[in-house]
Write a protein that binds this DNA or RNA. Structure first.
Length: 361
RNA sequence: GUGCCUGUAGCUUAGCUGGUUAAAGCGUCGGGUUGUGGUUCCGAAGAUCGAGGGUUCAAAUCCCUUCAGGCACC
């Protein structure tokens, strides 16, 4: 496999690199916002672009349910569908095994979800997930894994999820190779294998070895930020940092996007992050400001605040001078523009954080 | 002037054959959210039940007076 990723060390474990995808280069470390249904909620592609975002995610499960991968393909594929030229990555639907735990059944073959609105049964397997992702046309795709919670109840399923994830990875990889065997190397999407193992270091180490031993294009760290404490997550990231091999492959920490955690991730050698937090928090009125602190813009104390969210920020909302008093009012009256502006701000906050950790290439 | 109806949290109301610390939605205030089912979830503050008096062990609830708003008729 030709090298798609090159990096320079920037610290004990941290590094900065260039990832070459078929839709363009990506500088790392990088934060990638989630556009689950093909759109980063409330943002136009230009607004997303303005934050310095290089990659946008979409979700296999949600796009499969509606409008369906065939419809997306008929509309020209994910890029034309989402009106985005730059790199896109699809998540496998594996996370929905965790987040939609109440409405799904897992078997060795795959996972059956019941749509609570329509009653429809939806079946996802490693093969089907890869097929959907290939049909959608993402530039980076993720193997279908088994995600379990790390709260007190979920931890007893760690071993089962760990073992199944590896069996499913082999199936995901086989389907990927089948569907890409006639493609030029440079046209193939990059497949990420997922490391599981909960909070068990031995399992994590073993999982990492298994994933790294396979010809996947990238290493994804899954099964974190699912109910464990922040300290537990950081400890695992530090542990993993000492066990990566030397292969030129990007490391993607799935689902992490709190600035404090992103900093830790970068410190411990992670190259890519995705998370709903900047946009979900923004829609609920929470913004990040200098020092990785967060403020609730709807708080009464901002009623007559003429200052922008963060004076040191260069995002559209701050640069244009939208005051916290204005934003608070728009939140109070349910005006979606408030969520849009704070989404731009929060994403930019994470992009600036990543940019500060990059080396020159 | 006479008759009737309505006054309960900032708002809209529930409770009215008398019976624990008067309930809810919205609003207000605070918090949560980590590979997005959710303009969402959790919590808190907030009421001398229009006022005064009476009956009763006990009154938002029954009786009397009064005030305010509304409707109808003179």
């Amino acid at each position: 496999m030709s090298s798609i990723f090159s990096s320079k060390s920037t610290g004990k474990h941290s590094r900065s690199g260039v990832l070459v995808t078929r839709a363009g280069k990506v500088l790392t470390p990088t934060f990638m916002p989630d556009g689950t249904r093909g759109a980063v909620k409330s943002l136009t592609p230009e607004q997303v672009e303005s934050t310095g975002v290089q990659v946008v995610l979409a979700n296999t499960y949600h796009l499969h349910l509606a409008p369906g991968e065939d419809t997306v393909a008929a509309l020209g594929g994910l890029h034309a569908f989402a009106n985005r030229k730059g790199p896109m990555l699809t998540d496998s639907g594996g996370f929905q095994v965790f987040s939609l735990a109440k409405i799904r059944t897992i078997t060795e073959e795959g996972v059956t979800f019941k749509d609570p609105k329509t009653g429809d049964m939806v079946f996802l397997s490693p093969e089907i997930s890869i097929q959907i992702q290939m049909k959608l046309g993402a530039d980076m795709i993720v193997a279908f894994d088994d995600v379990t919670a790390l709260d007190d109840k979920g931890r007893d399923r760690t071993l089962e999820a760990f073992e199944r994830t590896h069996r499913w990875l082999e199936r995901s990889l086989a389907e990927y190779e089948r569907l890409t065997k006639d493609m030029k190397q440079s046209d193939k999407p990059i497949l990420f294998g997922v490391v599981q193992g909960g909070l068990d270091k031995e399992l994590r180490k073993k999982s990492l070895e298994i994933v790294q031993s396979l010809p996947v294009g990238g290493i994804a760290i899954g099964g974190l930020s699912v109910g464990e404490t922040r300290a537990e997550m950081h400890e695992m990231l530090e542990y993993l940092a000492g066990h990566y091999d030397d292969s030129p492959r990007p490391r993607f920490l799935l689902g992490v996007g709190d600035p404090i955690d992103v900093r830790k991730g970068i410190e411990y050698g992670i190259d890519m992050f995705d998370c709903v937090l900047p946009t979900r928090n923004a829609r609920h009125g929470t913004a990040w400001v200098a020092g990785d602190k967060k403020i609730h813009i709807t708080n009464e104390r901002f009623t007559e605040d003429t200052e922008v969210i963060d004076p040191g920020c260069d995002c559209y909302a701050c640069a244009k001078g939208f005051s916290k008093g204005f934003l608070r009012h728009q939140f109070k009256v349910g005006e979606p523009l408030a969520g849009t502006l704070v989404s731009i701000h929060n994403i930019r906050y994470l992009e600036r954080l990543c940019e500060e950790s990059r080396a020159a290439f």
